[in-house]
């Protein structure tokens, strides 16, 4: 089955990011395709490489980046939500005259059309959040 995921909540604050990650791993292990993971609302905070959790805790961003590296999962941050929350890639940083970017490996920034496309293309769109 072709599956799209929507993550609507930030890391550590809310279980959504953990549940979505575990769901993605389980689905891949069963042979399903994860077409895309779209991060919206505070979910875009999953994609900052600056997050520094204590060493005895899970590293939510690195987990996602590893999933992208090993399984080629498409991790997309909503551009409008990311701009509001200070998440940017080198292009966005330049366009908005910021002195740095903070996007993590394996993530990309794009528009909400990517979410709607996933909803249309996939057999299931699974939402993680309240």
């Amino acid at each position: 089955m072709k599956i799209g995921l929507l993550v609507n909540e930030g890391p550590y604050q809310h279980q959504a990011a953990d549940s979505a990650y575990r769901f993605a791993c389980a689905a891949l292990a069963k042979g399903h395709e994860i077409f895309r993971v779209f991060f919206y609302h505070d979910g875009v905070n999953n994609g900052t490489r600056l997050m520094t959790p204590p060493q005895d805790d899970r590293h939510i961003q690195q987990r996602w980046s590893e999933l992208a590296r090993t399984h080629g999962v498409d991790l997309v941050l909503c551009v409008a939500a990311a701009q509001r929350r200070g998440i940017c890639d080198p292009d966005e940083a330049k366009r908005n005259a910021k002195d740095a970017d903070n996007i993590a490996p394996g993530f990309r920034i794009s528009g909400l059309g990517q979410l709607v496309e996933a909803a249309i293309e996939c057999d299931r769109l699974v939402t993680f959040g309240d």
């Binding site: 909400l112 059309g113 979410l115 496309e117 909803a119």
Partner: peptide
């Protein structure tokens, strides 16, 4: 596809309503 946007929250206490509306407007192009 038959797509529903289900809005459950008050408009200003959280950002869900506003960012939800943005999805509806973008989604209209599809």
């Amino acid at each position: 596809k038959k797509i529903m946007y289900l809005h459950r929250r008050a408009p200003y206490g959280t950002v869900y309503a506003q960012e939800g509306l943005e999805v509806v407007l973008i989604g209209a192009a599809f």
